[in-house]
């Protein structure tokens, strides 16, 4: 199975322990099952009409207490030491901030670059600081055998060193609402020079690993407006459409200049959507929810002032 090949050192560490436990388990299960079946046949009342009344055996009790205990402790120890390796990032790791929100992932690199898929250089350690903007989410890359929860108001960390080129699924593993199962992304492992070309290449550098992501999340077309790119990067388009399609939140198409019924502090009001309204609604969504849409749903966006202006400019163009 191609997509389950070990793609990071953590996968090798996890699988080693798994196969150790798995081997022991299969042996134990076969032994118990075979013994049960043998006894039931061998000591059937036809073959063995008189039962022997054996009350127990202290020696055997000690044996089958101590041997499992030793085996279980060895599993614990092996699992622990390999986990120590998996959980402690080397100092030279590149630190990437992962932000989870309903229902998207975004990644911010040390130089401020952002992406919707996680780009990672081959054979280089990358440390992830995983945060959440709203609910508890789970950051999971099966091919790396790696998982860490994204918990609001905390930064949980994990790390990996990819050993195979490719695009690997990222999945959310903690139930977080209606589109939990669509909260997906990819880790795209690319050669280090390709990664550097993108990372140091300024705003317009092409995203690396085009051939690898072809099957996965489509990369942004180069002539995309900056505002649209920001909407995508912040997960806005998970709930709002730009083409009038109904989704969880109101569409952006034709929004600017429209009259909307909103609730402010529990009182219905009618407003005309202008630039001031848009800015307030993006930065503090709870203050003025459009009637008929769920309150307490949209996370506040963390946009820098110039980014906010670019988004608002873009929204004005959606007639």
């Amino acid at each position: 199975m191609e997509w389950m090949k070990q793609a990071a050192i953590s996968a090798q560490k996890s699988d080693a322990v798994f196969f150790y436990v798995f081997g022991l388990s299969v042996a134990f299960l076969l032994f118990i099952t075979a013994l049960m079946i043998y006894f039931v046949i061998r000591y059937d009342k036809k073959r063995h009409p008189v039962a022997s009344q054996i009350e127990g055996h202290v020696g055997l009790e000690i044996v089958w207490t101590v041997i499992p205990l030793i085996l279980f402790l060895s599993i614990f120890y092996y699992g622990w030491t390999n986990y120590e390796y998996m959980s402690q990032a080397p100092r030279e790791s590149m630190v990437v901030k992962v932000m989870a929100r309903q229902w998207s992932w975004s990644f911010e690199y040390p130089n401020g670059k952002q992406s919707k898929v996680l780009f990672a250089p081959l054979e280089k350690p990358m440390k992830l600081e995983v945060r959440s903007a709203d609910m508890v989410h789970g950051f999971y890359v099966p091919s790396f055998r790696l998982k860490i929860d994204a918990v609001p108001a905390r930064a949980n960390t994990t790390w990996f060193q990819a050993t195979r080129l490719g695009a690997y699924d990222i999945e959310c593993t903690v139930i977080c609402g209606v589109d939990h199962s669509l909260m997906l992304s990819k880790v795209v492992v690319v050669p280090e020079d390709e990664f550097k070309a993108w990372y140091f290449g300024g705003e317009n550098a092409p995203e690396p690993g085009k051939s690898l992501t072809a099957a996965g999340t489509p990369a942004a077309p180069p002539d995309e407006p900056k505002g649209l790119a920001l909407l995508k990067a912040n997960g806005c388009l998970e709930c709002h459409s730009v083409d009038g399609k109904p989704m969880v939140g109101p569409t952006f198409k034709g929004l600017f200049g429209k009259s909307e019924q909103i609730k402010v502090a529990g009182v219905d009001q009618t407003v005309t959507v202008d630039e001031a309204y848009l800015r307030r609604a993006i930065l503090n969504p709870e203050s003025q929810v459009v009637r008929g849409y769920p309150a307490d749903t949209m996370p506040a966006a963390e946009l820098k002032p110039d980014e906010l202006s670019q988004v608002v400019t873009y929204l004005k163009t959606l007639k």
Partner: peptide, 18 residues
Amino acid sequence: LTGVMQGALAVNVHLHDT
């Protein structure tokens, strides 16, 4: 036995919540 597998930390980070 599958419970013991998840009790091992290195395996748990893979299997948890699946």
